[in-house]
Design a protein around this nucleic acid. Structure first.
Lengths: 202, 202
DNA sequence: AAATGGATTCGCCATAAAGGAGAGTGCACA
DNA sequence: TGTGCACTCTCCTTTATGGCGAATCCATTT
């Protein structure tokens, strides 16, 4: 396999499921993609395995890639054994951080039932997480005025109302949202508000 | 102080800052409110203290309330001492879960520099977290068709495009969004999409 | 089988809101 | 003295919203 992975390749490569936590900041990620077996998710949630999970511990304290089998860490909650019962026998962790912005990191965990991940697969997945991490980088050039307007759109306010409350003309609000849409790459105000929300801007 | 707390009361009661994680599911919350000192947030993020934080460990493994001083847990990362240097000397944890839906929990951590939280304050804060948890409960009566439409609105698609891709009339899409707005308590499509996104429905 | 109620779809209309293009104004900064 | 940038305004088009009635489909009840 050569070239770059896309999201559509993940189910094939990570046959037993995968999990992505994108842009983890203070404690939690801006976005999470959970394609793990739903029965496992239920158990993991109910038993609150996160804090005991050696995989989570590894990605929080390291950067790079590692096979689950190579993680040298206690597993008091027996999380890895439990995971095996859901088909997640062999796995890979990826943790990346942006060299220019160490504040946010992204994690990926990929599982398969049949064999270890091979070196070139690891490279592909690592590259995929790194690219996704960069792609989800919040834009830095959105002005405070634009963010204000986006926040009020998200709150369900009309342009007229926003203009009145901000003390500017409706045209100005339109202009702000237009700029915000451009910077966020959004086609509509709804999308812009959702994106800004996802980026943690509002 | 009697009655119920509102968000505006928190800065007074938790003078040194507070943090709310609402509706924690698989691993992460649907919504997070972070009113901790920004210098502390930076340190906490940079040193990735979450996994070592006795407060986090407590709220993930317990339900109820506890003063920080009463948490009997190792603190290998010296997190509590570091927190004191940012004015967070006395603190309170609250962890709640919905009796009918154990799947999601909410946490709160409140800090002040001068004295322990008093019993009646603990009751008020506990009640506040429980009420906020309930208030953020995702609606369960939104249909799949409505969610589909909301997802496409969030993606910046126009009604005409949505109708075409779903193979229904534009009027049907309008009706779906109208119902969705009603169920979500949203005034506009933008707000409905943002709420659905926040609720993890899309 | 027939009737009932609920949810969904659809078309039509009128109005409100949002989106887009262009031009002008004021302001800070190099 | 330009050069960006944010703000404002106008004019026009497109889109969204809301109300209404009718048709359809489904499951449940009678």
């Amino acid at each position: 396999m050569t070239g770059q992975l896309g999201p559509q390749d993940l189910p094939i490569l990570a046959k037993a499921g995968y999990y992505l936590a994108l842009r983890v900041g203070f404690a939690f990620p801006l976005e999470e993609i959970n394609a793990l077996p739903s029965a496992w998710v239920e158990l993991y949630t109910a038993e609150r395995l996160m804090l005991q999970d050696p995989v989570i511990r590894w990605v929080y304290t390291n950067t790079g890639t590692i096979r689950w089998s190579e993680i040298c860490d206690d597993d008091p909650g027996d999380v890895m054994r439990k995971a095996r019962e859901f088909g997640m026998r062999y796995g890979l962790c990826v943790a990346v951080s942006d060299p220019v912005d160490e504040g946010q990191r992204s994690f990926g965990s990929f599982a398969r039932p049949d064999r270890e991940f091979m070196d070139d697969e690891i490279n592909l997945l690592s590259d995929f997480v790194a690219r996704t991490h960069r792609a989800k980088a919040p834009p830095t050039n959105v002005t405070l005025a634009e963010i204000e307007a986006l926040r009020m759109v998200k709150q369900g306010k009309r342009l007229k109302e926003i203009a009145y409350q901000l003390g500017v003309s409706e045209g100005a609000v339109k202009q702000r949202l237009k700029n915000a849409k451009l910077k966020l790459g959004a086609k509509t105000g709804a999308q812009a508000a959702a994106l800004a929300s996802q980026f943690g801007l509002i």
